[in-house]
């Protein structure tokens, strides 16, 4: 494997990790002030901050590899250059977040829960990464993952076993997220190179761990799902995205790109 092949695999993986956390944290933070319960609002925000912090760590690794400034990487790329999974860019619900947002808490619980289950599995694998700064980062990030997972597990189990109305909303959210969750589990077009370079384990291995773990959670709440997670709307790892990403990015970078001369903010 040549140096440039390995480098490409490495940066592609880091963009996936960074962009996943970046956009996921953004969607979470849009709930600020609107969560179903004030105590939850505060708790949820911590998780989003942690996740945004993880994105910042990955962007810094990219900066160290000569990809450009972390702030430019997160705020100045075009949508098709982003490598996050499509399900993570999806809006929290219909409506603008400043005017009458129709946010769906069931969708948020499911998306966050599934994401944190898969994130933990991915991080466990990255701990053994051949790229030392990445395995170091994975170790650090894992320390915060325990309570994130616990948070969403509690929400998942309780809403799944409460009222019929809640169960219905939760099941609808599971099906919706499942249809595109394959996009989180895939390593994209450079997956084989990543594995060859010893950066992370094989996609299929990680996927199996994920589905086995999920089956246990499903069983615990008396729910069955026999299909594999799909990637119905395409592979974000290959730069395929929806208008939701473009929309989010224009908000996220509005101020940063508004003054080309500005040296600092």
């Amino acid at each position: 494997m040549s140096f440039s092949e390995k480098n490409k695999a490495m940066t592609e993986l880091l963009y996936q990790l960074a962009d996943d956390d970046f956009i996921h944290a953004h969607r979470g933070s849009e709930w600020l002030g609107l969560a179903p319960h004030i105590e939850e609002d505060v708790a949820f925000s911590s998780i989003n901050q942690d996740t945004m912090g993880h994105a910042a760590m990955y962007y810094k690794l990219l900066e160290d590899l000569g990809e450009g400034k972390a702030d430019d990487l997160s705020h100045r790329r075009k949508p098709e250059q982003y490598r996050n999974a499509i399900i993570l860019e999806e809006r929290n619900g219909s409506g603008e977040y400043l005017e009458s947002p129709q946010y769906d808490w069931a969708f948020t619980v499911i998306r966050h829960f599934f994401y944190d289950v898969s994130k933990k599995i991915r991080l466990e694998s990255l701990k053994q990464s051949s790229y030392e700064p990445l395995s170091e980062a994975a170790r650090k990030i894992l320390t915060e993952q325990y309570y994130h997972l616990m948070h969403w597990e509690v929400w998942f189990k309780q809403l799944m076993t409460s009222t019929a109305k809640a169960r219905k909303k939760m099941e609808a959210a599971i099906f919706k997220v499942w249809d595109d969750f394959g996009g989180v589990l895939t390593l994209g077009p450079y997956g084989d190179e990543m594995v060859k370079a010893g950066l992370i384990e094989d996609e299929e291995v990680l996927k199996t761990r994920f589905t086995e773990r999920m089956q246990k959670y499903f069983q615990s709440v008396d729910f069955k799902l026999v299909t594999e997670p799909q990637m119905k709307r395409g592979d974000g790892r290959a730069g395929v995205h929806t208008p939701d990403l473009e929309h989010a990015l224009s908000t996220l970078s509005e101020v940063y790109v508004s003054d080309a001369e500005a040296a600092g903010w």
Partner: peptide
């Protein structure tokens, strides 16, 4: 103090409400 529907919820919220 905080408001929560049960112990489990109280715990996950306590951590972030008072120990940020």
């Amino acid at each position: 103090s905080l408001l929560a529907p049960n112990e489990e919820m109280a715990l996950i919220m306590a951590k972030e409400n008072f120990f940020r």
